[in-house]
Design a protein around this nucleic acid. Structure first.
Lengths: 205, 205, 205, 205
DNA sequence: GATGAATGAGAATTCATTCAT
DNA sequence: AATGAATGAATTCTCATTCAT
């Protein structure tokens, strides 16, 4: 039945409307303080209708991640493939990441909030996205090492957290500042920090 | 009245027990899925007793931040002051940060979860801690610039997010891995990344 | 939203059933000793259902006054208009008053109890009903004065309290006597007292 | 033990202070919305102390009636005995009644509220006071009838409610009007209404 | 498919009362 | 006698979910 729901409805207009409404409501109030009624009202459907498209409240969040947020992450792949140079790849990835999250503030809020929980409702989806992202970085770094523009004495697992953590925090800070400065402009300086660090070249041990 | 509560009870054994119980329960289940009854049971007191020490459920979280977590952050300051060299300062700060969060896993969970929410219940306390931390980093970076071991062409605001974000993410990944590897061991490689970045020295543009 | 509730439900069977149940439960136990669960059980609905029709417990009482009791008071007007003679009007008013309260003992209890509180939950509704009643009496008295059957040296404000107080007390006494004598039979003797007082005609100073 | 409490404490200063505090708190908030803590705070004693002087919360109300309010009613007797003329007696009674209630507004509120409840916590005490008062009126009326200044065709039971109801309502109205006009001034006009009614002498049927 | 009224389990909070000090 | 911390029963209200229409 669950499978039936998914195949039947995914293209449907109402499915989209509910999903969109849910992201916005969750972003505004947080998952637990949001009610099905609020989402229904924003989506312009009846409360009961939501249960034709989603198994339960948790499932809405799961689908936000498996359908909406995942799409965004899939876009990252092409961004990386568009160029050959590893540093350029990284720059494109980070820029696109910031762009997408700037474009959809609500998704950014829901994403950051949910990924920093220990008991995640969309655990599986987050793992998948996380793997997607981490694989991209691995690829870039490894290619960089082959090209000689990236150091070889790196613990790859750490590099990935280092990069994703910094990006997430830049987004998080942006979300908490009312002043809506341009998030994308952070891409280049940030990548610069990833590559060069903060140390002065000559001071390098 | 609230003031009365605070002064009367802060030294009290029960206050501590409830606070400790709450951190653990919140860490395990998340704030909204935790109930006062669970906390009371873990603390070994009656439900009503909690309201002798805390105004309401939100207030428990606020006090966790203003009393327990803040203490940890205040310890960072001395860690930085213990040494003179800026890089050493940074290394100490990051190590201590990882140490403390490894020591108190529940606090780490609650901290990461709450700081990545947009409507935070302990907003004020988080701001305060955040400022504390960011000021430390600013100091270190600026001293590093004066000493010549840190680049001058840096946007300080970004550097701070870059560092704190990476640290947080290293902790977050550790929290989500059951295998409890040693978090502290990440300090040195991480600081190395902060200083040198991932680029090879000669490839620097 | 509150408006929505009212228009959607006022005709509804369940609205009436809950209202009726509430009057009876309040009458039996008093407002504060009555619980939503009791009312729900008597009304034959679930606890939560009550909140589809009423904002909260207080609102039930408010609606009892603005919907149920007010209806009764509006009936008084036609009773007075049915006859021309002022004394006859007063007699009709008092008789109808006693009749209605005898007919609905629970409402009588709730009415008397609530009107003799200083912090009334249905303050506005009571004021409105009170004005309705007092205006009727004013009219009657003034017409009586014009007709010559009522004294002119009267402080109208006091006359109104004098009448309404006596009527209320007759009802109150009836409510407290288990023996359920006929309340209506008090109408004529009472009006007689209003008109003639207890003094003997010749003894009048 | 209860008896012990009573004899031991009635003269005690703390007993009085708690009783006084309770009347004021009950008057301000109503019995059910008042808490033992509030009363204790106003009385300047600890919560637990109240239970040295009173069996429970209900008992405080009972003692207010059996100790404080009853005193007031006992004063009515001497007021009536001071003069010989029945009309004068009634005038004194009503005046004193209004005086006392004006003097102690809180008591007036508690008295009116409690006497108009059906499930009274101080039922017995109220009955006693009620009997006291009604007996006074009976006496006056009967003496008036013997003297010839009061009509003989009266239903005594009704006359008593007629008088007490009017007096209570005059007080009730005064309590609900912020403007604190002089309640005592109502005594003479009110008694005049009791004696003469509102009818014009010649219009008497 | 769509609706939204109805449900009732569940949770936060209050407060009369007790009792160790 | 006096205290006030501790208790836990009791109550209001919310909201995810169901189901008859």
């Amino acid at each position: 039945m669950e499978a039936a729901i998914k195949t039947r409805h995914k293209q449907n207009d109402k499915y989209r409307r509910i999903l969109e409404a849910a992201v916005n409501v969750f972003a505004e109030q947080g998952f637990f303080q949001s009610t099905i009624s609020q989402i229904a009202k924003v989506a312009g459907v009846a409360d009961g209708t939501i249960y034709l498209y989603f198994k339960n409240k948790d499932d809405i969040l799961v689908q936000i991640f498996s359908f909406k947020t995942k799409q965004v992450f899939e876009g990252f792949r092409e961004e990386v493939d568009r160029v050959a140079d590893p540093v350029e790849k990284l720059r494109n990835l980070v820029r696109r990441h910031l762009e997408e999250f700037q474009k959809d503030r609500s998704m950014a809020i829901v994403y950051l909030s949910e990924t920093h929980q220990t008991s995640r409702r969309a655990e599986e989806q987050i793992r998948e996205m996380s793997k997607l992202y981490l694989d991209l970085i691995s690829e870039i770094v490894e290619q960089g090492q082959a090209d000689g523009c990236v150091r070889k004495d790196l613990y790859l697992g750490l590099v990935r957290r280092f990069i994703i953590g910094a990006v997430d925090e830049v987004i998080n800070t942006w979300l908490h500042s009312d002043g809506t400065y341009d998030l994308t402009s952070m891409a280049d300086p940030l990548v610069d920090l990833f590559i060069q660090g903060i140390g002065s070249a000559d001071a390098t041990e």
